[in-house]
């Protein structure tokens, strides 16, 4: 008990007196292979692509990276993964926080013991050093633009989403809504799930969640089609949703009447775009998330000097990996590239 303050004091003194000395803070040793980790928010094909990016970067920069996917998509699970990583002596962690606003304390705690960056979904209030990903709100607005292209005359639309307590899902949805209602850019806005949302042209009839249960997603899409026979467009925000929406619309015999817009690059979604049933999709670049996360962590962990380290960070702590719109005209090229990256070709 009495020794602890002394140790702390001497440590502080050491830091203060010789700021430029290569002190192995956090045990960083430039020669050794750094131990890094890439933590996702769920299990998905999407993250398999991300994993390929991670592996490519690990090879290129010569570091050990483990990939962790919490199967149940819960905060407690993710917390356990993060704490276990610290216990194992992991030096750098890139994480996609499941519930950022409620994980600040946890992330700060982890950030005190290792180098932490966020990817895919940000936690701006925490002490993470940087965020690598796209702005989900902007991606949502891109998706909104696709909807406007698909149904220029407007009409009622329905949004399907796995669950709405995830920050990226909320912001994507908000981007779509704001774009369709012609509102200003304001990523902090949030409309409740059952809010009545109607603009000049577009009306957001409903947002349905399915807890990532695939049969339930299909049932929800079918029931929405039953309930409203004037739907102009349906949007699926999670990777598995657009193909199931496509099946529901197909079996309802309403292809051509109900337009569809998607998120992510499920094979069947891409096929749907090729076939002309789905107007387009907004894709992120999970490969780059993985690659850039590892690249940045690698640099940070190998750099013992704090001031030099700060200089390594991207501007505003945000490394933008922009979302892209995929339509019928560029889907072929995108798909070929994707197959190459996932090694499926």
């Amino acid at each position: 008990m009495r020794i602890l303050p002394l140790v702390l004091l001497s440590l502080l003194a050491a830091c203060g007196s010789k700021p430029a000395a290569p002190t192995p803070v956090g045990g960083a040793d430039p020669a050794a292979k750094p131990k890094l980790a890439f933590v996702t928010n769920c299990v998905a094909e999407f993250w398999t692509i991300g994993k390929h990016g991670v592996e490519a970067a690990a090879k290129q920069f010569d570091c050990d990276v483990t990939v962790h996917m919490p199967p149940k998509n819960t905060v407690s699970e993710q917390q356990q993964i993060l704490q276990d990583l610290i216990a194992r002596g992991t030096k750098g962690i890139a994480v996609s926080p499941i519930d950022p606003s409620n994980m600040t304390g946890l992330l700060d705690d982890i950030a005190a013991r290792a180098t932490v960056v966020t990817h895919d979904s940000d936690a701006p209030a925490s002490k993470r050093l940087a965020y690598i990903g796209m702005d989900n709100y902007e991606a949502g607005r891109l998706c909104g633009k696709l909807i406007v292209e698909a149904v220029p005359q407007g009409g009622p639309i329905v949004i399907l989403v796995g669950n709405l307590d995830q920050d990226n899902a909320r912001r994507r949805r908000q981007g779509i809504i704001d774009e369709l209602l012609g509102r200003s850019m304001d990523p902090t806005r949030f409309d409740a799930q059952d809010a009545k949302l109607k603009g000049d042209k577009f009306e957001i009839r409903a947002t349905f969640t399915d807890q990532t249960d695939h049969p339930k997603c299909k049932a929800t899409a079918q029931d929405a089609l039953t309930r409203w026979n004037d739907l102009a467009c349906m949007v699926g925000l999670f990777e598995y949703e657009p193909p199931l929406i496509l099946e529901a619309v197909q079996s309802a015999g309403r292809l051509g009447k109900v337009a569809m817009v998607a998120f992510d690059e499920n094979e069947q979604t891409l096929q749907g775009i090729l076939d002309g049933h789905i107007h387009g999709t907004v894709v992120q670049n999970p490969y780059e998330y993985g690659f850039q996360s590892v690249a940045l962590l690698n640099k940070l962990v190998r750099e013992p000097d704090a001031t030099k380290r700060a200089a390594l960070l991207p501007k505003d702590g945000f490394l933008n990996i922009p979302a892209r719109q995929i339509r019928k005209d560029n889907v072929r090229a995108f798909w070929d590239d994707l197959k190459q990256k996932t090694g499926k070709k």
């Binding site: 769920c42 299990v43 998905a44 199967p71 149940k72 807890q211 990532t212 249960d213 695939h214 049969p215 997603c217 299909k218 598995y240 193909p243 199931l244 099946e247 069947q268």
Partner: peptide, 17 residues
């Protein structure tokens, strides 16, 4: 039947509950 209906299954969530 379920997998034939929705075309794909994800081990972590398929048939949960």
């Amino acid at each position: 039947l379920f997998v034939l209906d929705v075309n794909s299954a994800q081990a972590s969530s398929f048939g949960n509950f």
